[in-house]
């Protein structure tokens, strides 16, 4: 509850706003669905990182990922990363839907997956695996 009074210098009251106490009902849901979504995002990022590095290391993988000639191997890397992300989400969501798991565990897993994704897509890293 809050009351706001607005007055001019000199003391003349010009406005008054009063808020009354209000209630809001919130039904708490388990964190499983959130964990499924964010871990799946981490898996998608990691798949992208792994494919980016493998593409550099192997010409066979490079050719396999070249789904579209104009886009090159980026077409396969991104397509398979997105498919992997959606599949991971589709698998994890029903498993975790009505459950709560440890926040720390979920966040550490997601953090590691995302770091793996960022590192795998960093040129100075994946160039270390470049084939001759």
């Amino acid at each position: 509850m809050a009351t706001i009074r607005v007055s001019r210098e000199g003391g003349q009251m010009i406005d008054e706003i009063e808020w009354k106490a209000e209630e809001l009902d919130i039904v708490e849901r388990p964190n499983g669905p959130a964990m499924a979504a964010i871990i799946a995002a981490g898996i998608g990022a990691l798949i992208l990182g792994i494919l980016t590095t493998l593409n550099e290391a192997s010409t066979d993988v490079h050719d396999f990922l070249e789904i579209d000639k104009d886009v090159g191997p980026l077409s396969g890397k991104t397509l398979f990363a997105v498919i992997g992300y959606l599949v991971a989400w589709a698998v994890l969501a029903p498993l975790l839907w009505r459950r709560s798991i440890s926040w720390n565990t979920g966040l550490i897993i997601t953090g590691l997956l995302l770091v793996g994704g960022f590192v795998g897509t960093f040129p100075k890293f994946f160039e270390l695996f470049a084939s001759e």
């Binding site: 979504a37 964010i38 799946a40 995002a41 998608g44 990022a45 992208l48 990182g49 980016t52 980026l74 890397k77 991104t78 990363a81 997105v82 992300y85 995302l114 994704g117 960022f118 897509t121 960093f122 040129p123």
Partner: peptide, 15 residues
């Protein structure tokens, strides 16, 4: 770097 790392954005933003 750009062409790869950009794809992490929509994946995480969707979550």
């Amino acid at each position: 770097w750009k062409e790869h790392v950009a794809w992490i954005a929509p994946i995480v933003a969707t979550a």
